[in-house]
Simulated assay, not measured.
Amino acid sequence: MKILIVYYSTYGHVHRMAEAVAEGIKQIDGAEPVLRRVPETLPEDVLEKMGTVDA
């Protein structure tokens, strides 16, 4: 059984949490985690002002 983990992460914190959830799912017999990251939708200039370009 595949379990979909959909997440959005700007700075990487939520990405690490999604990976931890996936590791937990791997402990269940017959379960397979599938990670899908929601693409960034903010314009580049807004991301620069937020200081997230390097993140």
Rank of each mutant, 00 (worst) to 15 (best):
E19I: 02
T52Q: 06
T10G: 14
Y7T: 10
R36K: 05
I3S: 01
Y7I: 07
G30D: 11
R37T: 12
L4K: 11
M50F: 04
A22W: 02
V21W: 02
I5R: 00
D29N: 12
E32H: 02
D54I: 11
E44H: 03
D45M: 04
V53F: 11
A22V: 06
R16S: 08
Y11D: 07
K2M: 13
V21P: 00
Y11V: 05
L35Q: 06
D54E: 11
V53R: 11
G12T: 12
I25E: 00
A31E: 00
A31G: 09
R16Q: 14
V53Y: 05
H15T: 11
H15C: 07
M17H: 10
R16F: 10
I5H: 01
V21A: 05
E32I: 00
G12L: 14
M1F: 11
E19A: 01
G24M: 08
M50N: 15
E19P: 01
V38S: 15
I3L: 06
T10A: 04
D29S: 04
V46C: 12
T10K: 15
R37N: 02
H13M: 03
E32C: 00
S9R: 01
I28H: 09
P43F: 09
Y11Q: 04
H15F: 04
E44N: 05
M1N: 13
Y11R: 10
P39V: 07
A20L: 10
G51P: 14
V46D: 07
A22F: 03
G30I: 04
Y8T: 09
E23G: 07
G24N: 08
H13K: 06
A55R: 14
K26Q: 07
E40R: 12
D29F: 09
V14E: 03
T52V: 03
E23Y: 02
I28K: 09
L47P: 00
A55M: 09
